[in-house]
Amino acid sequence: MSIIKVNNLSKSFGGVKAVSHINMAIDGGEIIGIIGPNGAGKTTFFNLLTGIYSPTSGEVIYNLDKEVSSKSFKPHKMTGYGVARTFQNIRLFKNMSIIDNVLLGYHNNMSYGLLSSLFRLPSFYKNETKAYDEALKLLEIFNLLDKKDELASNLPYGEQRKVEIARALAAKPKLLLLDEPAAGMNPNETKELTTLINWIKDEFKLTIILIEHDMSLVMGICSKVFVFDYGTLIASGTPNEVQNNEQVIKAYLGGE
């Protein structure tokens, strides 16, 4: 059964059709790649999946914990529905430490009230300790344990990307959306990231959708690829099928 259904999804900004008439169905436990030239509508599509934009027409239906339609999407409710994301232009909390950044990911899983936080009641210590221990484990996975007290803005680019993924994982999602996770990484880092993404998919039992320009990463780990061009879906299939698709080649290289 597919966990994400996209039905005839469109989004226009004034006269510009950023995304138009997208249909797709995605099964659980896969890594899905979304590729396409610049301005093809990939990030807009992500923003539609995470409630930052609401669709002009059509809808998205998640079937993660329970069935939710894009009519009830709000950005802050998405982690509650089991969806977490990263951003194309890294959005870490720059003046907070790495551990605090990751702890913020646990926001929805914290369950103590205002009085407990003002008076430091036992539930404060219980929740905070649990989240702190889990955050340490996450940082260990990403090899960032020794930098936990560093400010986020002091980390190199590649590691900031990792912190962002760790923060998203802290929200305990079922579906993880990665917007250009390998941007700004060198080939070695990309290789390492490829292994890591594959590993977290199995370890955390996730479905991952990623936007990426780095074809080595996309072709290496995605089981299915969707190709966008001018807001429409021009091709989908396994990496091999897509690579040999004429329309895709035309979109990337141009043609008559």
Binding site: T50, I52, P75, H76, K77, M78, T79, G80, A84, R85, F87, R91, L92, F93, K94, N95, M96, L104, G105, H107, N108, R167, A168, A171
Partner: peptide
């Protein structure tokens, strides 16, 4: 720090 990111984290 960053309202959009905070919102995306719930």
């Amino acid at each position: 720090e960053d309202e959009i990111a905070a919102e995306a984290m719930g």
